[in-house]
Design a protein around this nucleic acid. Sequence first.
DNA 1: ATCGAGATCACA
DNA 2: GTGATCTCGATA
Length: 206
Amino acid sequence: MSYDWAKLPADRVDEAARSLLGWRLNAGGVTVRLTEVEAYSGLGKDPASHAHRGMTNRNEVMFGPAGFLYVYQIYGMYLCANIVCGEPGVAAAVLLRAGEVVDGLDVARGRRTVRKDLDLASGPAKIMQVLALTKAANGTSVIDGTGPLTLTRPLEPPQEISAGPRVGVTSAHDVPWRFWITGDPTVSAYRRHVPGKTRKTPAPGR
DNA sequence: ATCGAGATCACA
DNA sequence: GTGATCTCGATA
């Protein structure tokens, strides 16, 4: 297996993201075909990146070499995973956003409460659930076979790739660094982010 | 010490 | 539209 995306420099993390589409993710007896990703730059100003303000305990894996997993918890309950890209010292990464379960369907169904099979892995936290990946996967390798997640290159690359703004990112809406396989039914419809639209208590009266 | 927002998901 | 309740950065 040749992991070409792992050799790309950080300033080409968008290429790395594109080239990961269609790859198979294997873990916990389930295989997911990757259909949607997002690129995050570690260079200069990518205010959407977790590493934008420097290294923390949470994001330190992002500053390491390519081919390792950066797993983080979001909204207190869910996990999402990135594959670190670029050279060491630069925190570029590709978020695994959605996929299609292509093997281990019964196991996958048992790990998720969901109506349609197409929704088994149609989101970043859903991928983690069907693959049974936990925070223990943080900092493990996907290329040397020592970690819980392994990757397999597709026989044929995806036919057509679409690009658009990243989901849930308030800043940098002009950067089209969300990539997906055109027309794939596991890719969620683009939801425009609406900042500050939710609030628990009404604003103080005037 | 406390607060607000966030690369989310399932359900009503 | 709502709730679950972690992590970080800003504020005090």
